[in-house]
Every structure is written in C-alpha cells, then in structure tokens.
Design a protein around this nucleic acid. Sequence first.
DNA 1: ATGAAAGCGCTAACAC
DNA 2: GTGTTAGCGCTTTCAT
Lengths: 337, 337
Amino acid sequence: MGVTIKDIAKESGVSITTVSRVLNDKPDVSSKTKEKVKEVIDRLGYKPSGVARGLVLQKTYTIGLIIPDISNPFFPEVARGIEDKAKEMDYSVIFCNTDNDHLAEKEAIKLMKSKQVDGILLSLSIENKEELKKLEEDDFPVVQIDRKVPNSELPSVTIDNVLSAYNATEHLIQLGHTQIVHITGDLGTKTAQDRLKGFKKAINGSEISYKEEWILEGDYSKESGYNLMKSLLKEPPQPTAIFAANDLMAIGAYGAAYDLGLEIPEDISIVGHDDIDIASVIRPGLTTMVQPKYELGKKAAEILIDELERKNIDKKDEILQPKLIERDSTRECSDNV
Amino acid sequence: MGVTIKDIAKESGVSITTVSRVLNDKPDVSSKTKEKVKEVIDRLGYKPSGVARGLVLQKTYTIGLIIPDISNPFFPEVARGIEDKAKEMDYSVIFCNTDNDHLAEKEAIKLMKSKQVDGILLSLSIENKEELKKLEEDDFPVVQIDRKVPNSELPSVTIDNVLSAYNATEHLIQLGHTQIVHITGDLGTKTAQDRLKGFKKAINGSEISYKEEWILEGDYSKESGYNLMKSLLKEPPQPTAIFAANDLMAIGAYGAAYDLGLEIPEDISIVGHDDIDIASVIRPGLTTMVQPKYELGKKAAEILIDELERKNIDKKDEILQPKLIERDSTRECSDNV
DNA sequence: ATGAAAGCGCTAACAC
DNA sequence: GTGTTAGCGCTTTCAT
C-alpha cells in the first residue's frame, strides 16, 4: 500500500476514525474537518483498501462467476449482462471457466469461497448436484444461470427451451406447413430434450399428425444437419419445413437443400435456434429464435445482488423467453396456396 | 466467516502460529502436530481467508482485466487465454468492460486499485494516455493487450497487423494475381491503418504497380464491403483478387460478386481477415488470416505474472503473428494460366 | 518444535 | 463532533 488512512489522519491532524467517517459519509463530522480531510485525500491520492475493508466488514462487493467456457459464444453476452448489473450496484465480478469438469467446478467454488466473494453465479454441469447441495446447506448466496440442477432449491435464471421450440414450430404451422421435420441437438443434453419436447407439443397441439420418422437426431454440428437433411431429402415424402435445434444444423440443412437443387424458402422453409452471428449474414437470412443472453446475465446478477442486500427474500426461478426473429428462410407453404 | 484459524488452533490444541505454519507448508512443525492440524482442518472444512491473507501479505493473487467489451467476439478467447494462464499460476481474474469510454477506463483502473489486484491487463482506447502514464509513474504492474498506447513504456502483447495484411496480400501475389484491390477498415482505427500499410508494402515489394484507385475505404461492415465491390465491379478494369480488411466486408464482397454473376474463386479470389465463425461456414470457405487470440491472452497473462513473481525483469513487447488459413475463396489467377 | 505478540488497513462501539 | 480502542483473520518476527 502507498498512502493509508493513517497518513491521511496525520496529515489532516485528525484521528483515523474521523477520516473513516468522511470516507463513508457518516454524520457527525463538522463540514470544516470534512473539507480538510477531503482535501488531503485528494492531494495524497489516497484510495481506501478494499481488502482491509473487506476484512472488517466481511463483505467484498465481489461476486463470482463460474461458467463452462467464456469463449463459448453463448456466455460473453451473459457475462456482459452480469458485469453491467454488478457495476451498477457497485460490485465487481471475478470469473472462472470449468469446461463442465466436475473437479474444476468444485475447485472454482472453493476458490470463490476463499476469495470471499459475497455470492456466486454459476452454470454447473447438470450432474454436479453435490457441490450445489453443499452451497445450499451453507446458505451461501447462489444463483444458477442457464442450467438448473434438478431438485435444487437455489434460485435460477434459465431460458425456456420448451416454449422456444414450441414457438418456432408454431411459426411454421401458422405458415401453413404440415410436413415439418425436426433436427434435434445432442439428446444427451437437457436443452436438446426440451427443444424436442416443445416441437412435439406444437405438432400434437395442431391438426398435423406426429411422425416419429420426422424426428432426426443430430448433434448440434453443421455436418449433422447437412447429412441428416441430405439423406432425408433424397426420397419422398419430402417435408416443406425444417426446425433445426440450432443454427449450425440449420446452416448444414441449407447446404443439403442447395446440393439437391432446392430453393430456400421457395421449396423448403427452415428455422433455426440461437441467432448466432451467421444467421443474419447468410443468404437467405435465417429465421431463428434469439436467446435473451444479456438479459439472462443481468437478471441473474440482479437476483443475486438483491439477495445480498436483503432487498428480496423470495428467491425465485426466472424463466426467460426467446423471441422469434423472422428473416428470409421461412414463408407460407406453397402446397396450400 | 465460518471457521477461522483460531478455531482450528483451539480444536487441535496448538497456537494459531502453528496452524499457519502447516497451512503454508513451513518447516519446523513435527509431523505429529502437522497431521493433527490437517485432520482438524479437514474435519471442520476450514478455508483460509484470502482477504485476511491479502491484508497482511499485501498481495491478493488477483489480476484485473480491463477490456472494451467481453461480448465483442475478439475478447472472449483472449479472456480465456488469460484465465487459463492465471489459474495455472494460482491467480484469479476480475474483469471490467469499458466500451472504450475514457471515464469508464479511468473508473475501472481506480476500481482495480481499490480491490488491490496485483496487476492489470488492459486494452485502453488509444487516446487515453494519461491513465497509462499514471500507472507507469506508480510502477503498477501492467501489460497492454491488443492495443499499445503510443510511446508508452509499459509492456504489451499485440497482433502484427502490418505483417498480417502483408502476408494476406502476398498470398494473392504468389497465386499470380496482379490486379488486386484492398477494402480497408475504418481508417480512423490503427488496425485499419496498419493493414493498409501491410497491403501497400506487399504491392510495392512486387512487380505490381500500385494503384491508388484500388484502395477502397470501407468501415468494417458487411454493407460497406458489398457496396464498394458492387460499384467497383460494374465497370472495367476488373480486379482478379480482393483483400478485405475483415471477414465481414469479405462476405459483403461475396454478395456483390454473386449479384454480378461472378464466381468465387473462378472469376475472383477473395481473402479476408480475422477468421470469424462465418468464414468456415460460408461457401466457398473464406481464405483468411486467423488471429492468435487465445495466445495473446495467455502471453499477456504470462508476462504480467512473471513480473509479479519477479521472474522476469526485462519487460518487453510481444508481437504475435496471424496465420493464413487457406480455404476455397482463393486460387491461382486464371489470366496467367 | 512451538507460542506470544505485533501489525496489515480499516470500521465500529464506546467514551468524552 | 471527535478520539480511543478493540477487533476482522491472518503472517511473521522474536522468544523460548
């Protein structure tokens, strides 16, 4: 440390208590001394030590962010939402990547505790219940983001993948499509399962009869979208619309359609999910579901900080709704015209 | 705090000094007591307070990361490189977005100082010399990332945009192209200026005569790439190759070429810069220069931490080289065949 | 090999 | 309105 509260006290001829008082805008300081102390603080360029303050207050004004991977395109915006909210409330954020590794998650939590963050925002692998349970028992302030560990009491902010897929499919149905295939994501993930669920729900809620063979299991990769579509389109009956569980597979489907001489959206409509950069750049623009990533981060930080400041007792789950963005890859089904 | 060093001392019947010794693996502790203390630590689930430790040691094992915007696609990978290296060296990172705003940058630095980070990694707006100068005077450990404030002594890790553009252009020249246009980025940025410089250098170092009219000033947007190419291609003489200062403009150029019935790469070769996601997804795949973003972060963290641990006295500038990734948007110039 | 005591920079009773 | 004092949880001389 350079200059400390002691230096300020000595230089301004008062006690450190008084300095502390003006630092924290406490009452009972004459305006004269307040002025003097402030002047000295400015002159000496004094900055209170957050560490010392943290020790006595048992509060660091820091929150921990534990995510799988900041370089996964989903998280940067989430992180931005978190940091914006945190800054607004005078907190800072310390982050850590886990790559969904159990041990890394455990270590990250340990680290955050030793750094004495006031609370944690985390996205744990679904199976890592133990760590979350411990946090719960310790009454440590936590908000789960994006993924909610099943049966956990801790509040969460997630995205409604069921409804999102439902809406995407419903959009196709509204356009008059009746021959709709769904390319799923990796069904080992909850997200893919939920999107499939939403798709089924939309189909079953319509006049359309559900066909098992029009559920194609992909793995979120462009290649899987391409290959699945290619083999599907080779022979009739041909669908008039596709709902892919993510944009990458939708792009793969574009490629297959082109290779087979099909025009988008004239011959086939395609809707994706996520709204990655590419969706707006590719031609035709991909109709897709955009996830409120920034809002997700912001909301999670808000819930956590509200809890920290005891503004909010009822911890709750927040479920955010993706929005459809219509571009040029979908249009009315021509079979019905 | 839950359980503290005092509790461990009491429970194991030793002094806190002894506990501290086993905590820090100091010598002069009998293996018996060491065992006992360790057992108690485990049993009580004790974790040393980083804050208290930080106060006495005047070291927090935390580094600050100040960047314009984590949701700008350039930074997440940089941040990942930083966090990986930091974790490896037992540091954590606390981050802050500034949106290139001077005031926000100033506040961020202030914040980092009050949190008492051991050092700062930052990417300041080029004009914000004052803040950097202050840091320099204070001898505060800092490494600049991506952008180096001119005339600053503080070490930096940057990407060599001149050489990168040179190599991109050289690639086109090697392929036999002699009619090459360059679509620049926003020339208000150093990056765009450097890439233009590299382009000129390659042209001037070749047999090709430099043509001012084949420098097209864009603004990094897809639209600018599209518009510039469209008006250029309308009338002869037509270039056989394009080097766009970023991928987005290259994609725009794709659109213009298609609209005018030109095939890529048969009629015209295109190389971009950055290797954004889209570059590998689009057809034909875009030949481009990939920036070592992860390495940039990792190297910057390494230099900073080396300085913190006094392993490295000579603070130096590190300049990383982008690599060419050849896909399908470039080929030999057919005019020369 | 172990412990007592001082102190890191700050806040918060409690006095005056 | 201001100062004294006792910690916050830890490391580190300095004794023993």
